[in-house]
């Protein structure tokens, strides 16, 4: 069942994507209202002429680039895992309501004052929201359910979570809270700080590790449940790793950057023709590809409408929706045949 040709192909691809994400990371540091030489980051802030630029680089652009990198990676990875686990080519945290539920969790923590008790309350509440969503989906749709039923369950969850988020922001005493709805639904990396990085990075790493461990088991699962069982795959373990990995990773990502959709849908599909459909091969490249994709989208936000804080989710949705419709048509054709 090992096909060496794909393994040979996936390693160079992974390498290329990593190089590309490093280049984009550097470009993301330099690009903004004004171009700032990223190398300044190592030069330090001794020279008073560049003190402002150094501060912008270190405290505003560096966290922005790091967040794009790690959140892109976790979204790409979780998309690939969910597609394998639910055996559904349309699965993705954004579409299935996981991101929207994480947003709801984060908003609850912020506006009930929970977040002011402990700095960890925000990511924790977001990942509880995400976990409930993944769990509900699994309960509703299961792993053998119809593809479209799962998607519709996701639509229902997204709508409900979005409505409750709006409700909480409406009830808030803060007159500016309603403006935040856009952030929680569409996501943005603008003016985040290193605190947000420290807050999300550990969770994203833990979630990412849990998801990475599912690769082999998902390989077996792609041959069907019975085959997988005969190969000694512990289905419950895969389920738990996938559910909690997604919840922890996507929950923390959403808590600091809002709900960013479609990354987990587009990236694995673009890479599958290159590495084959075996999850163990697909997972690492999806993570790297997600980072590349989100770094590009976040640079795009700044190129298209500089100074306007165009929301990241707008870009990913503009690319993602036609892609989703195309996939939907493809899935339906297969079912007819």
């Amino acid at each position: 069942m090992t096909d060496p040709s794909f393994e040979k192909r996936s390693l160079p691809l992974l390498f290329m994507l990593c190089i590309l994400s490093v280049l984009l990371f550097i470009l993301s540091l330099g690009w903004g209202q004004v171009w700032i030489n990223p190398l300044l980051l190592f030069a330090g802030s001794e020279d008073p002429a560049v003190k402002g630029e150094y501060l912008i680089l270190l405290e505003i652009r560096l966290p922005r680039a790091i967040l794009a990198l790690i959140i892109g990676a976790i979204l790409g990875l979780s998309g690939a895992v969910l597609q394998g686990l639910l055996r559904n080519p349309l699965a993705e945290p954004g579409l299935l309501g996981v991101s929207a539920s994480a947003s709801l969790g984060a908003v609850i923590a912020l506006y009930t004052g929970l977040a002011s008790f402990s700095i960890l309350a925000l990511p924790f509440s977001a990942l509880v929201g995400a976990a409930i969503a993944v769990f509900l989906l699994h309960l509703l749709a299961g792993s053998r359910a119809d593809i479209l039923v799962t998607i519709l369950a996701g639509v229902a969850l997204t709508t409900l979570a979005g409505a409750l988020t709006t409700l909480i922001l409406n009830l808030s005493k803060n007159p500016f809270a309603v403006l935040e709805i856009v952030f929680w639904m569409m996501g943005s990396f603008a003016d985040r700080s290193l605190q947000h990085v420290w807050l999300s990075l550990p969770f994203i790493l833990i979630g990412g590790l849990m998801l990475a461990f599912t690769g082999r088991a998902l390989d077996a699962l792609s041959l069907g449940h019975d085959v997988a069982r005969s190969l000694g795959v512990n289905f419950r373990r895969v389920q738990l790793l996938s559910i909690f990995g997604t919840a922890i990773g996507v929950g923390a990502a959403t808590a600091v950057a809002g709900a960013i959709g479609f990354v987990g849908l587009i990236v694995p599909h673009l890479l599958r023709p290159l590495v084959g459909s075996r999850p163990s091969q697909l997972l690492p490249v999806s993570a790297a590809g997600g980072a590349v994709f989100l770094l590009m989208a976040d640079i795009g936000v700044r190129v298209i409408l500089p100074g306007k804080d165009l929301k990241l989710g707008v870009i990913t949705a503009l690319i993602g929706t036609p892609f989703f419709l195309w996939l939907l048509i493809k899935v339906r054709r297969k079912e007819v045949l």
Partner: peptide, 9 residues
């Protein structure tokens, strides 16, 4: 809106 970057500059 004025981004934080622009405010500092």
């Amino acid at each position: 809106r004025l981004s934080l970057e622009s405010l500092i500059l």
